[in-house]
Design a protein around this nucleic acid. Structure first.
Length: 361
DNA sequence: GAACTAACATAATCAAGCC
DNA sequence: GGCTTGATTATGTTAGTTC
């Protein structure tokens, strides 16, 4: 059943090794099967997806993407019509088995990651050939790698224009633990009092950074953050907020491991100490004013990304249809609201992506 | 040009498996 | 139990295709 009809359009970006995968055009019959399956279960496990792959001749990763997009559409539609989303029903289908030991191939991937953190389809397929791994696995590997090793690797995504994913050439080495002071991510605090750094090429000094990918989080240089917070301590040449999770791991610093009860992820044991991003615990910008000394040693976990905060592949300039959701209105029972989230409902929590416009290209 | 939608991005989380 | 890391989710943007 050869129903795949990729377009014949030119792929100049792919030719450069940075392009997107060629679009899959679902035939009506394929879509029908997918929709029928979606009706039965919008969250198919690997077994079902594999079955679909066999049935309609669409690769499993494409099936997975289709279900992601379809869920997104349906969820949006349900919200618009104020209908409850049925969510997961029936017994949970099993996940894909963890990919076996990939150590032999990792070196090659690391090398590729160093050169380019956002490989296009051509490069990913090339890596897949060389390693014998699936291209979709490589894509996931890069996703996870970018999140967990923000300071490593090469260029920012091509589509982010002037935004950088890290300073050119990656983040600078982290400062010594003794002098660390963390920046404040205004996006998740209330009433960010300080100016935003412009995110245009050349505007950010070495070591400054924007958030991952194109998610244009307003940020401060450490010195600015300290200044804004009224901290008199000398501002270290802190390179990047993106180091924080890394620091948490590497330094094993108890002062960075406080407030375990602040967020209550289901998997708290595994996430509590790692998924932290810098924000000064208890230091509510609006209510407490300048930091008090007692706050300096406290870190809190960042609450989950609020709905409406752009997490997407590109510029924040456009208002997506889903982007108007208020915080705390998650439709997913799986996502932990967290303590901070519960108090984060006012309009000052505007998504950073809505405040910081990325120059379009 | 607008609408639709596959592809891709993120953060957050779950969970397997190793130490 | 702590940690690493593969897999999955929700959500948002980009860009190709169709009308």
């Amino acid at each position: 059943m050869a129903l795949l009809t990729p377009s014949d359009s030119a792929l100049p970006r792919e030719a450069q090794g940075r392009g997107w995968r060629r679009r899959l055009l679902c035939a009506p019959s394929q879509r029908e099967v997918l929709r029928a399956c979606f009706e039965r279960n919008p969250y198919p496990g690997i077994a079902t997806r594999e079955e679909l792959t066999q049935a309609i001749d669409i690769l499993e990763p494409r099936v997975q993407i289709w279900f992601q997009n379809e869920r997104s559409r349906q969820l949006r539609q349900h919200r618009l019509e104020s209908r409850p989303w049925p969510g997961k029903r029936g017994p949970q289908e099993s996940r894909r088995k963890r990919t076996a030991d990939t150590r032999p191939q990792i070196a090659l991937l690391l090398q590729a990651f160093e050169q380019d953190r956002f490989p296009g389809i051509t490069i990913r397929e090339e890596l897949a050939r060389e390693t014998g791994l699936q291209e979709s696995w490589i894509q996931i590997w890069f996703q996870n790698r970018r999140v967990r090793h923000p300071g490593q690797g090469g260029r920012a995504p091509a589509h982010t224009g002037g935004l950088c994913n890290a300073a050119p050439g990656g983040c600078p080495p982290p400062p010594a633990p003794s002098s660390v002071a963390f920046t404040h991510i205004g996006a998740w605090g209330k009433g960010l009092p300080a100016p935003h750094m412009p995110c245009v090429p050349g505007a950010l000094p070495q070591g400054a950074f924007t958030s991952q990918g194109s998610r244009a989080v307003a940020l401060l240089q450490p010195s600015q953050a300290v200044q804004a917070a009224g901290i008199s301590a000398p501002a270290p040449a802190l390179g990047a907020l993106c180091w924080v999770p890394w620091l948490l791991r590497k330094w094993d610093c108890p002062t960075l491991r406080l407030l375990g009860g602040l967020c209550t992820p289901t998997n708290a044991r595994k996430t509590r100490t790692h998924r932290a991003v810098a924000c000064w615990a208890l230091a509510r910008w609006d209510s407490l004013g300048p930091f008090q000394l007692s706050h300096r040693t406290k870190m809190c976990l960042r609450h989950p990304r609020p709905s409406g905060v752009a997490g997407g592949a590109g510029a924040p300039g456009r208002q997506g249809g889903v982007g108007t959701r208020r915080w705390g209105s998650s439709t997913s029972g799986a996502r932990d609201p967290g303590v901070l989230r519960a108090s984060s409902t006012d309009a000052s929590h505007q998504a950073p992506s809505q405040r910081l416009q990325k120059p379009r290209h």
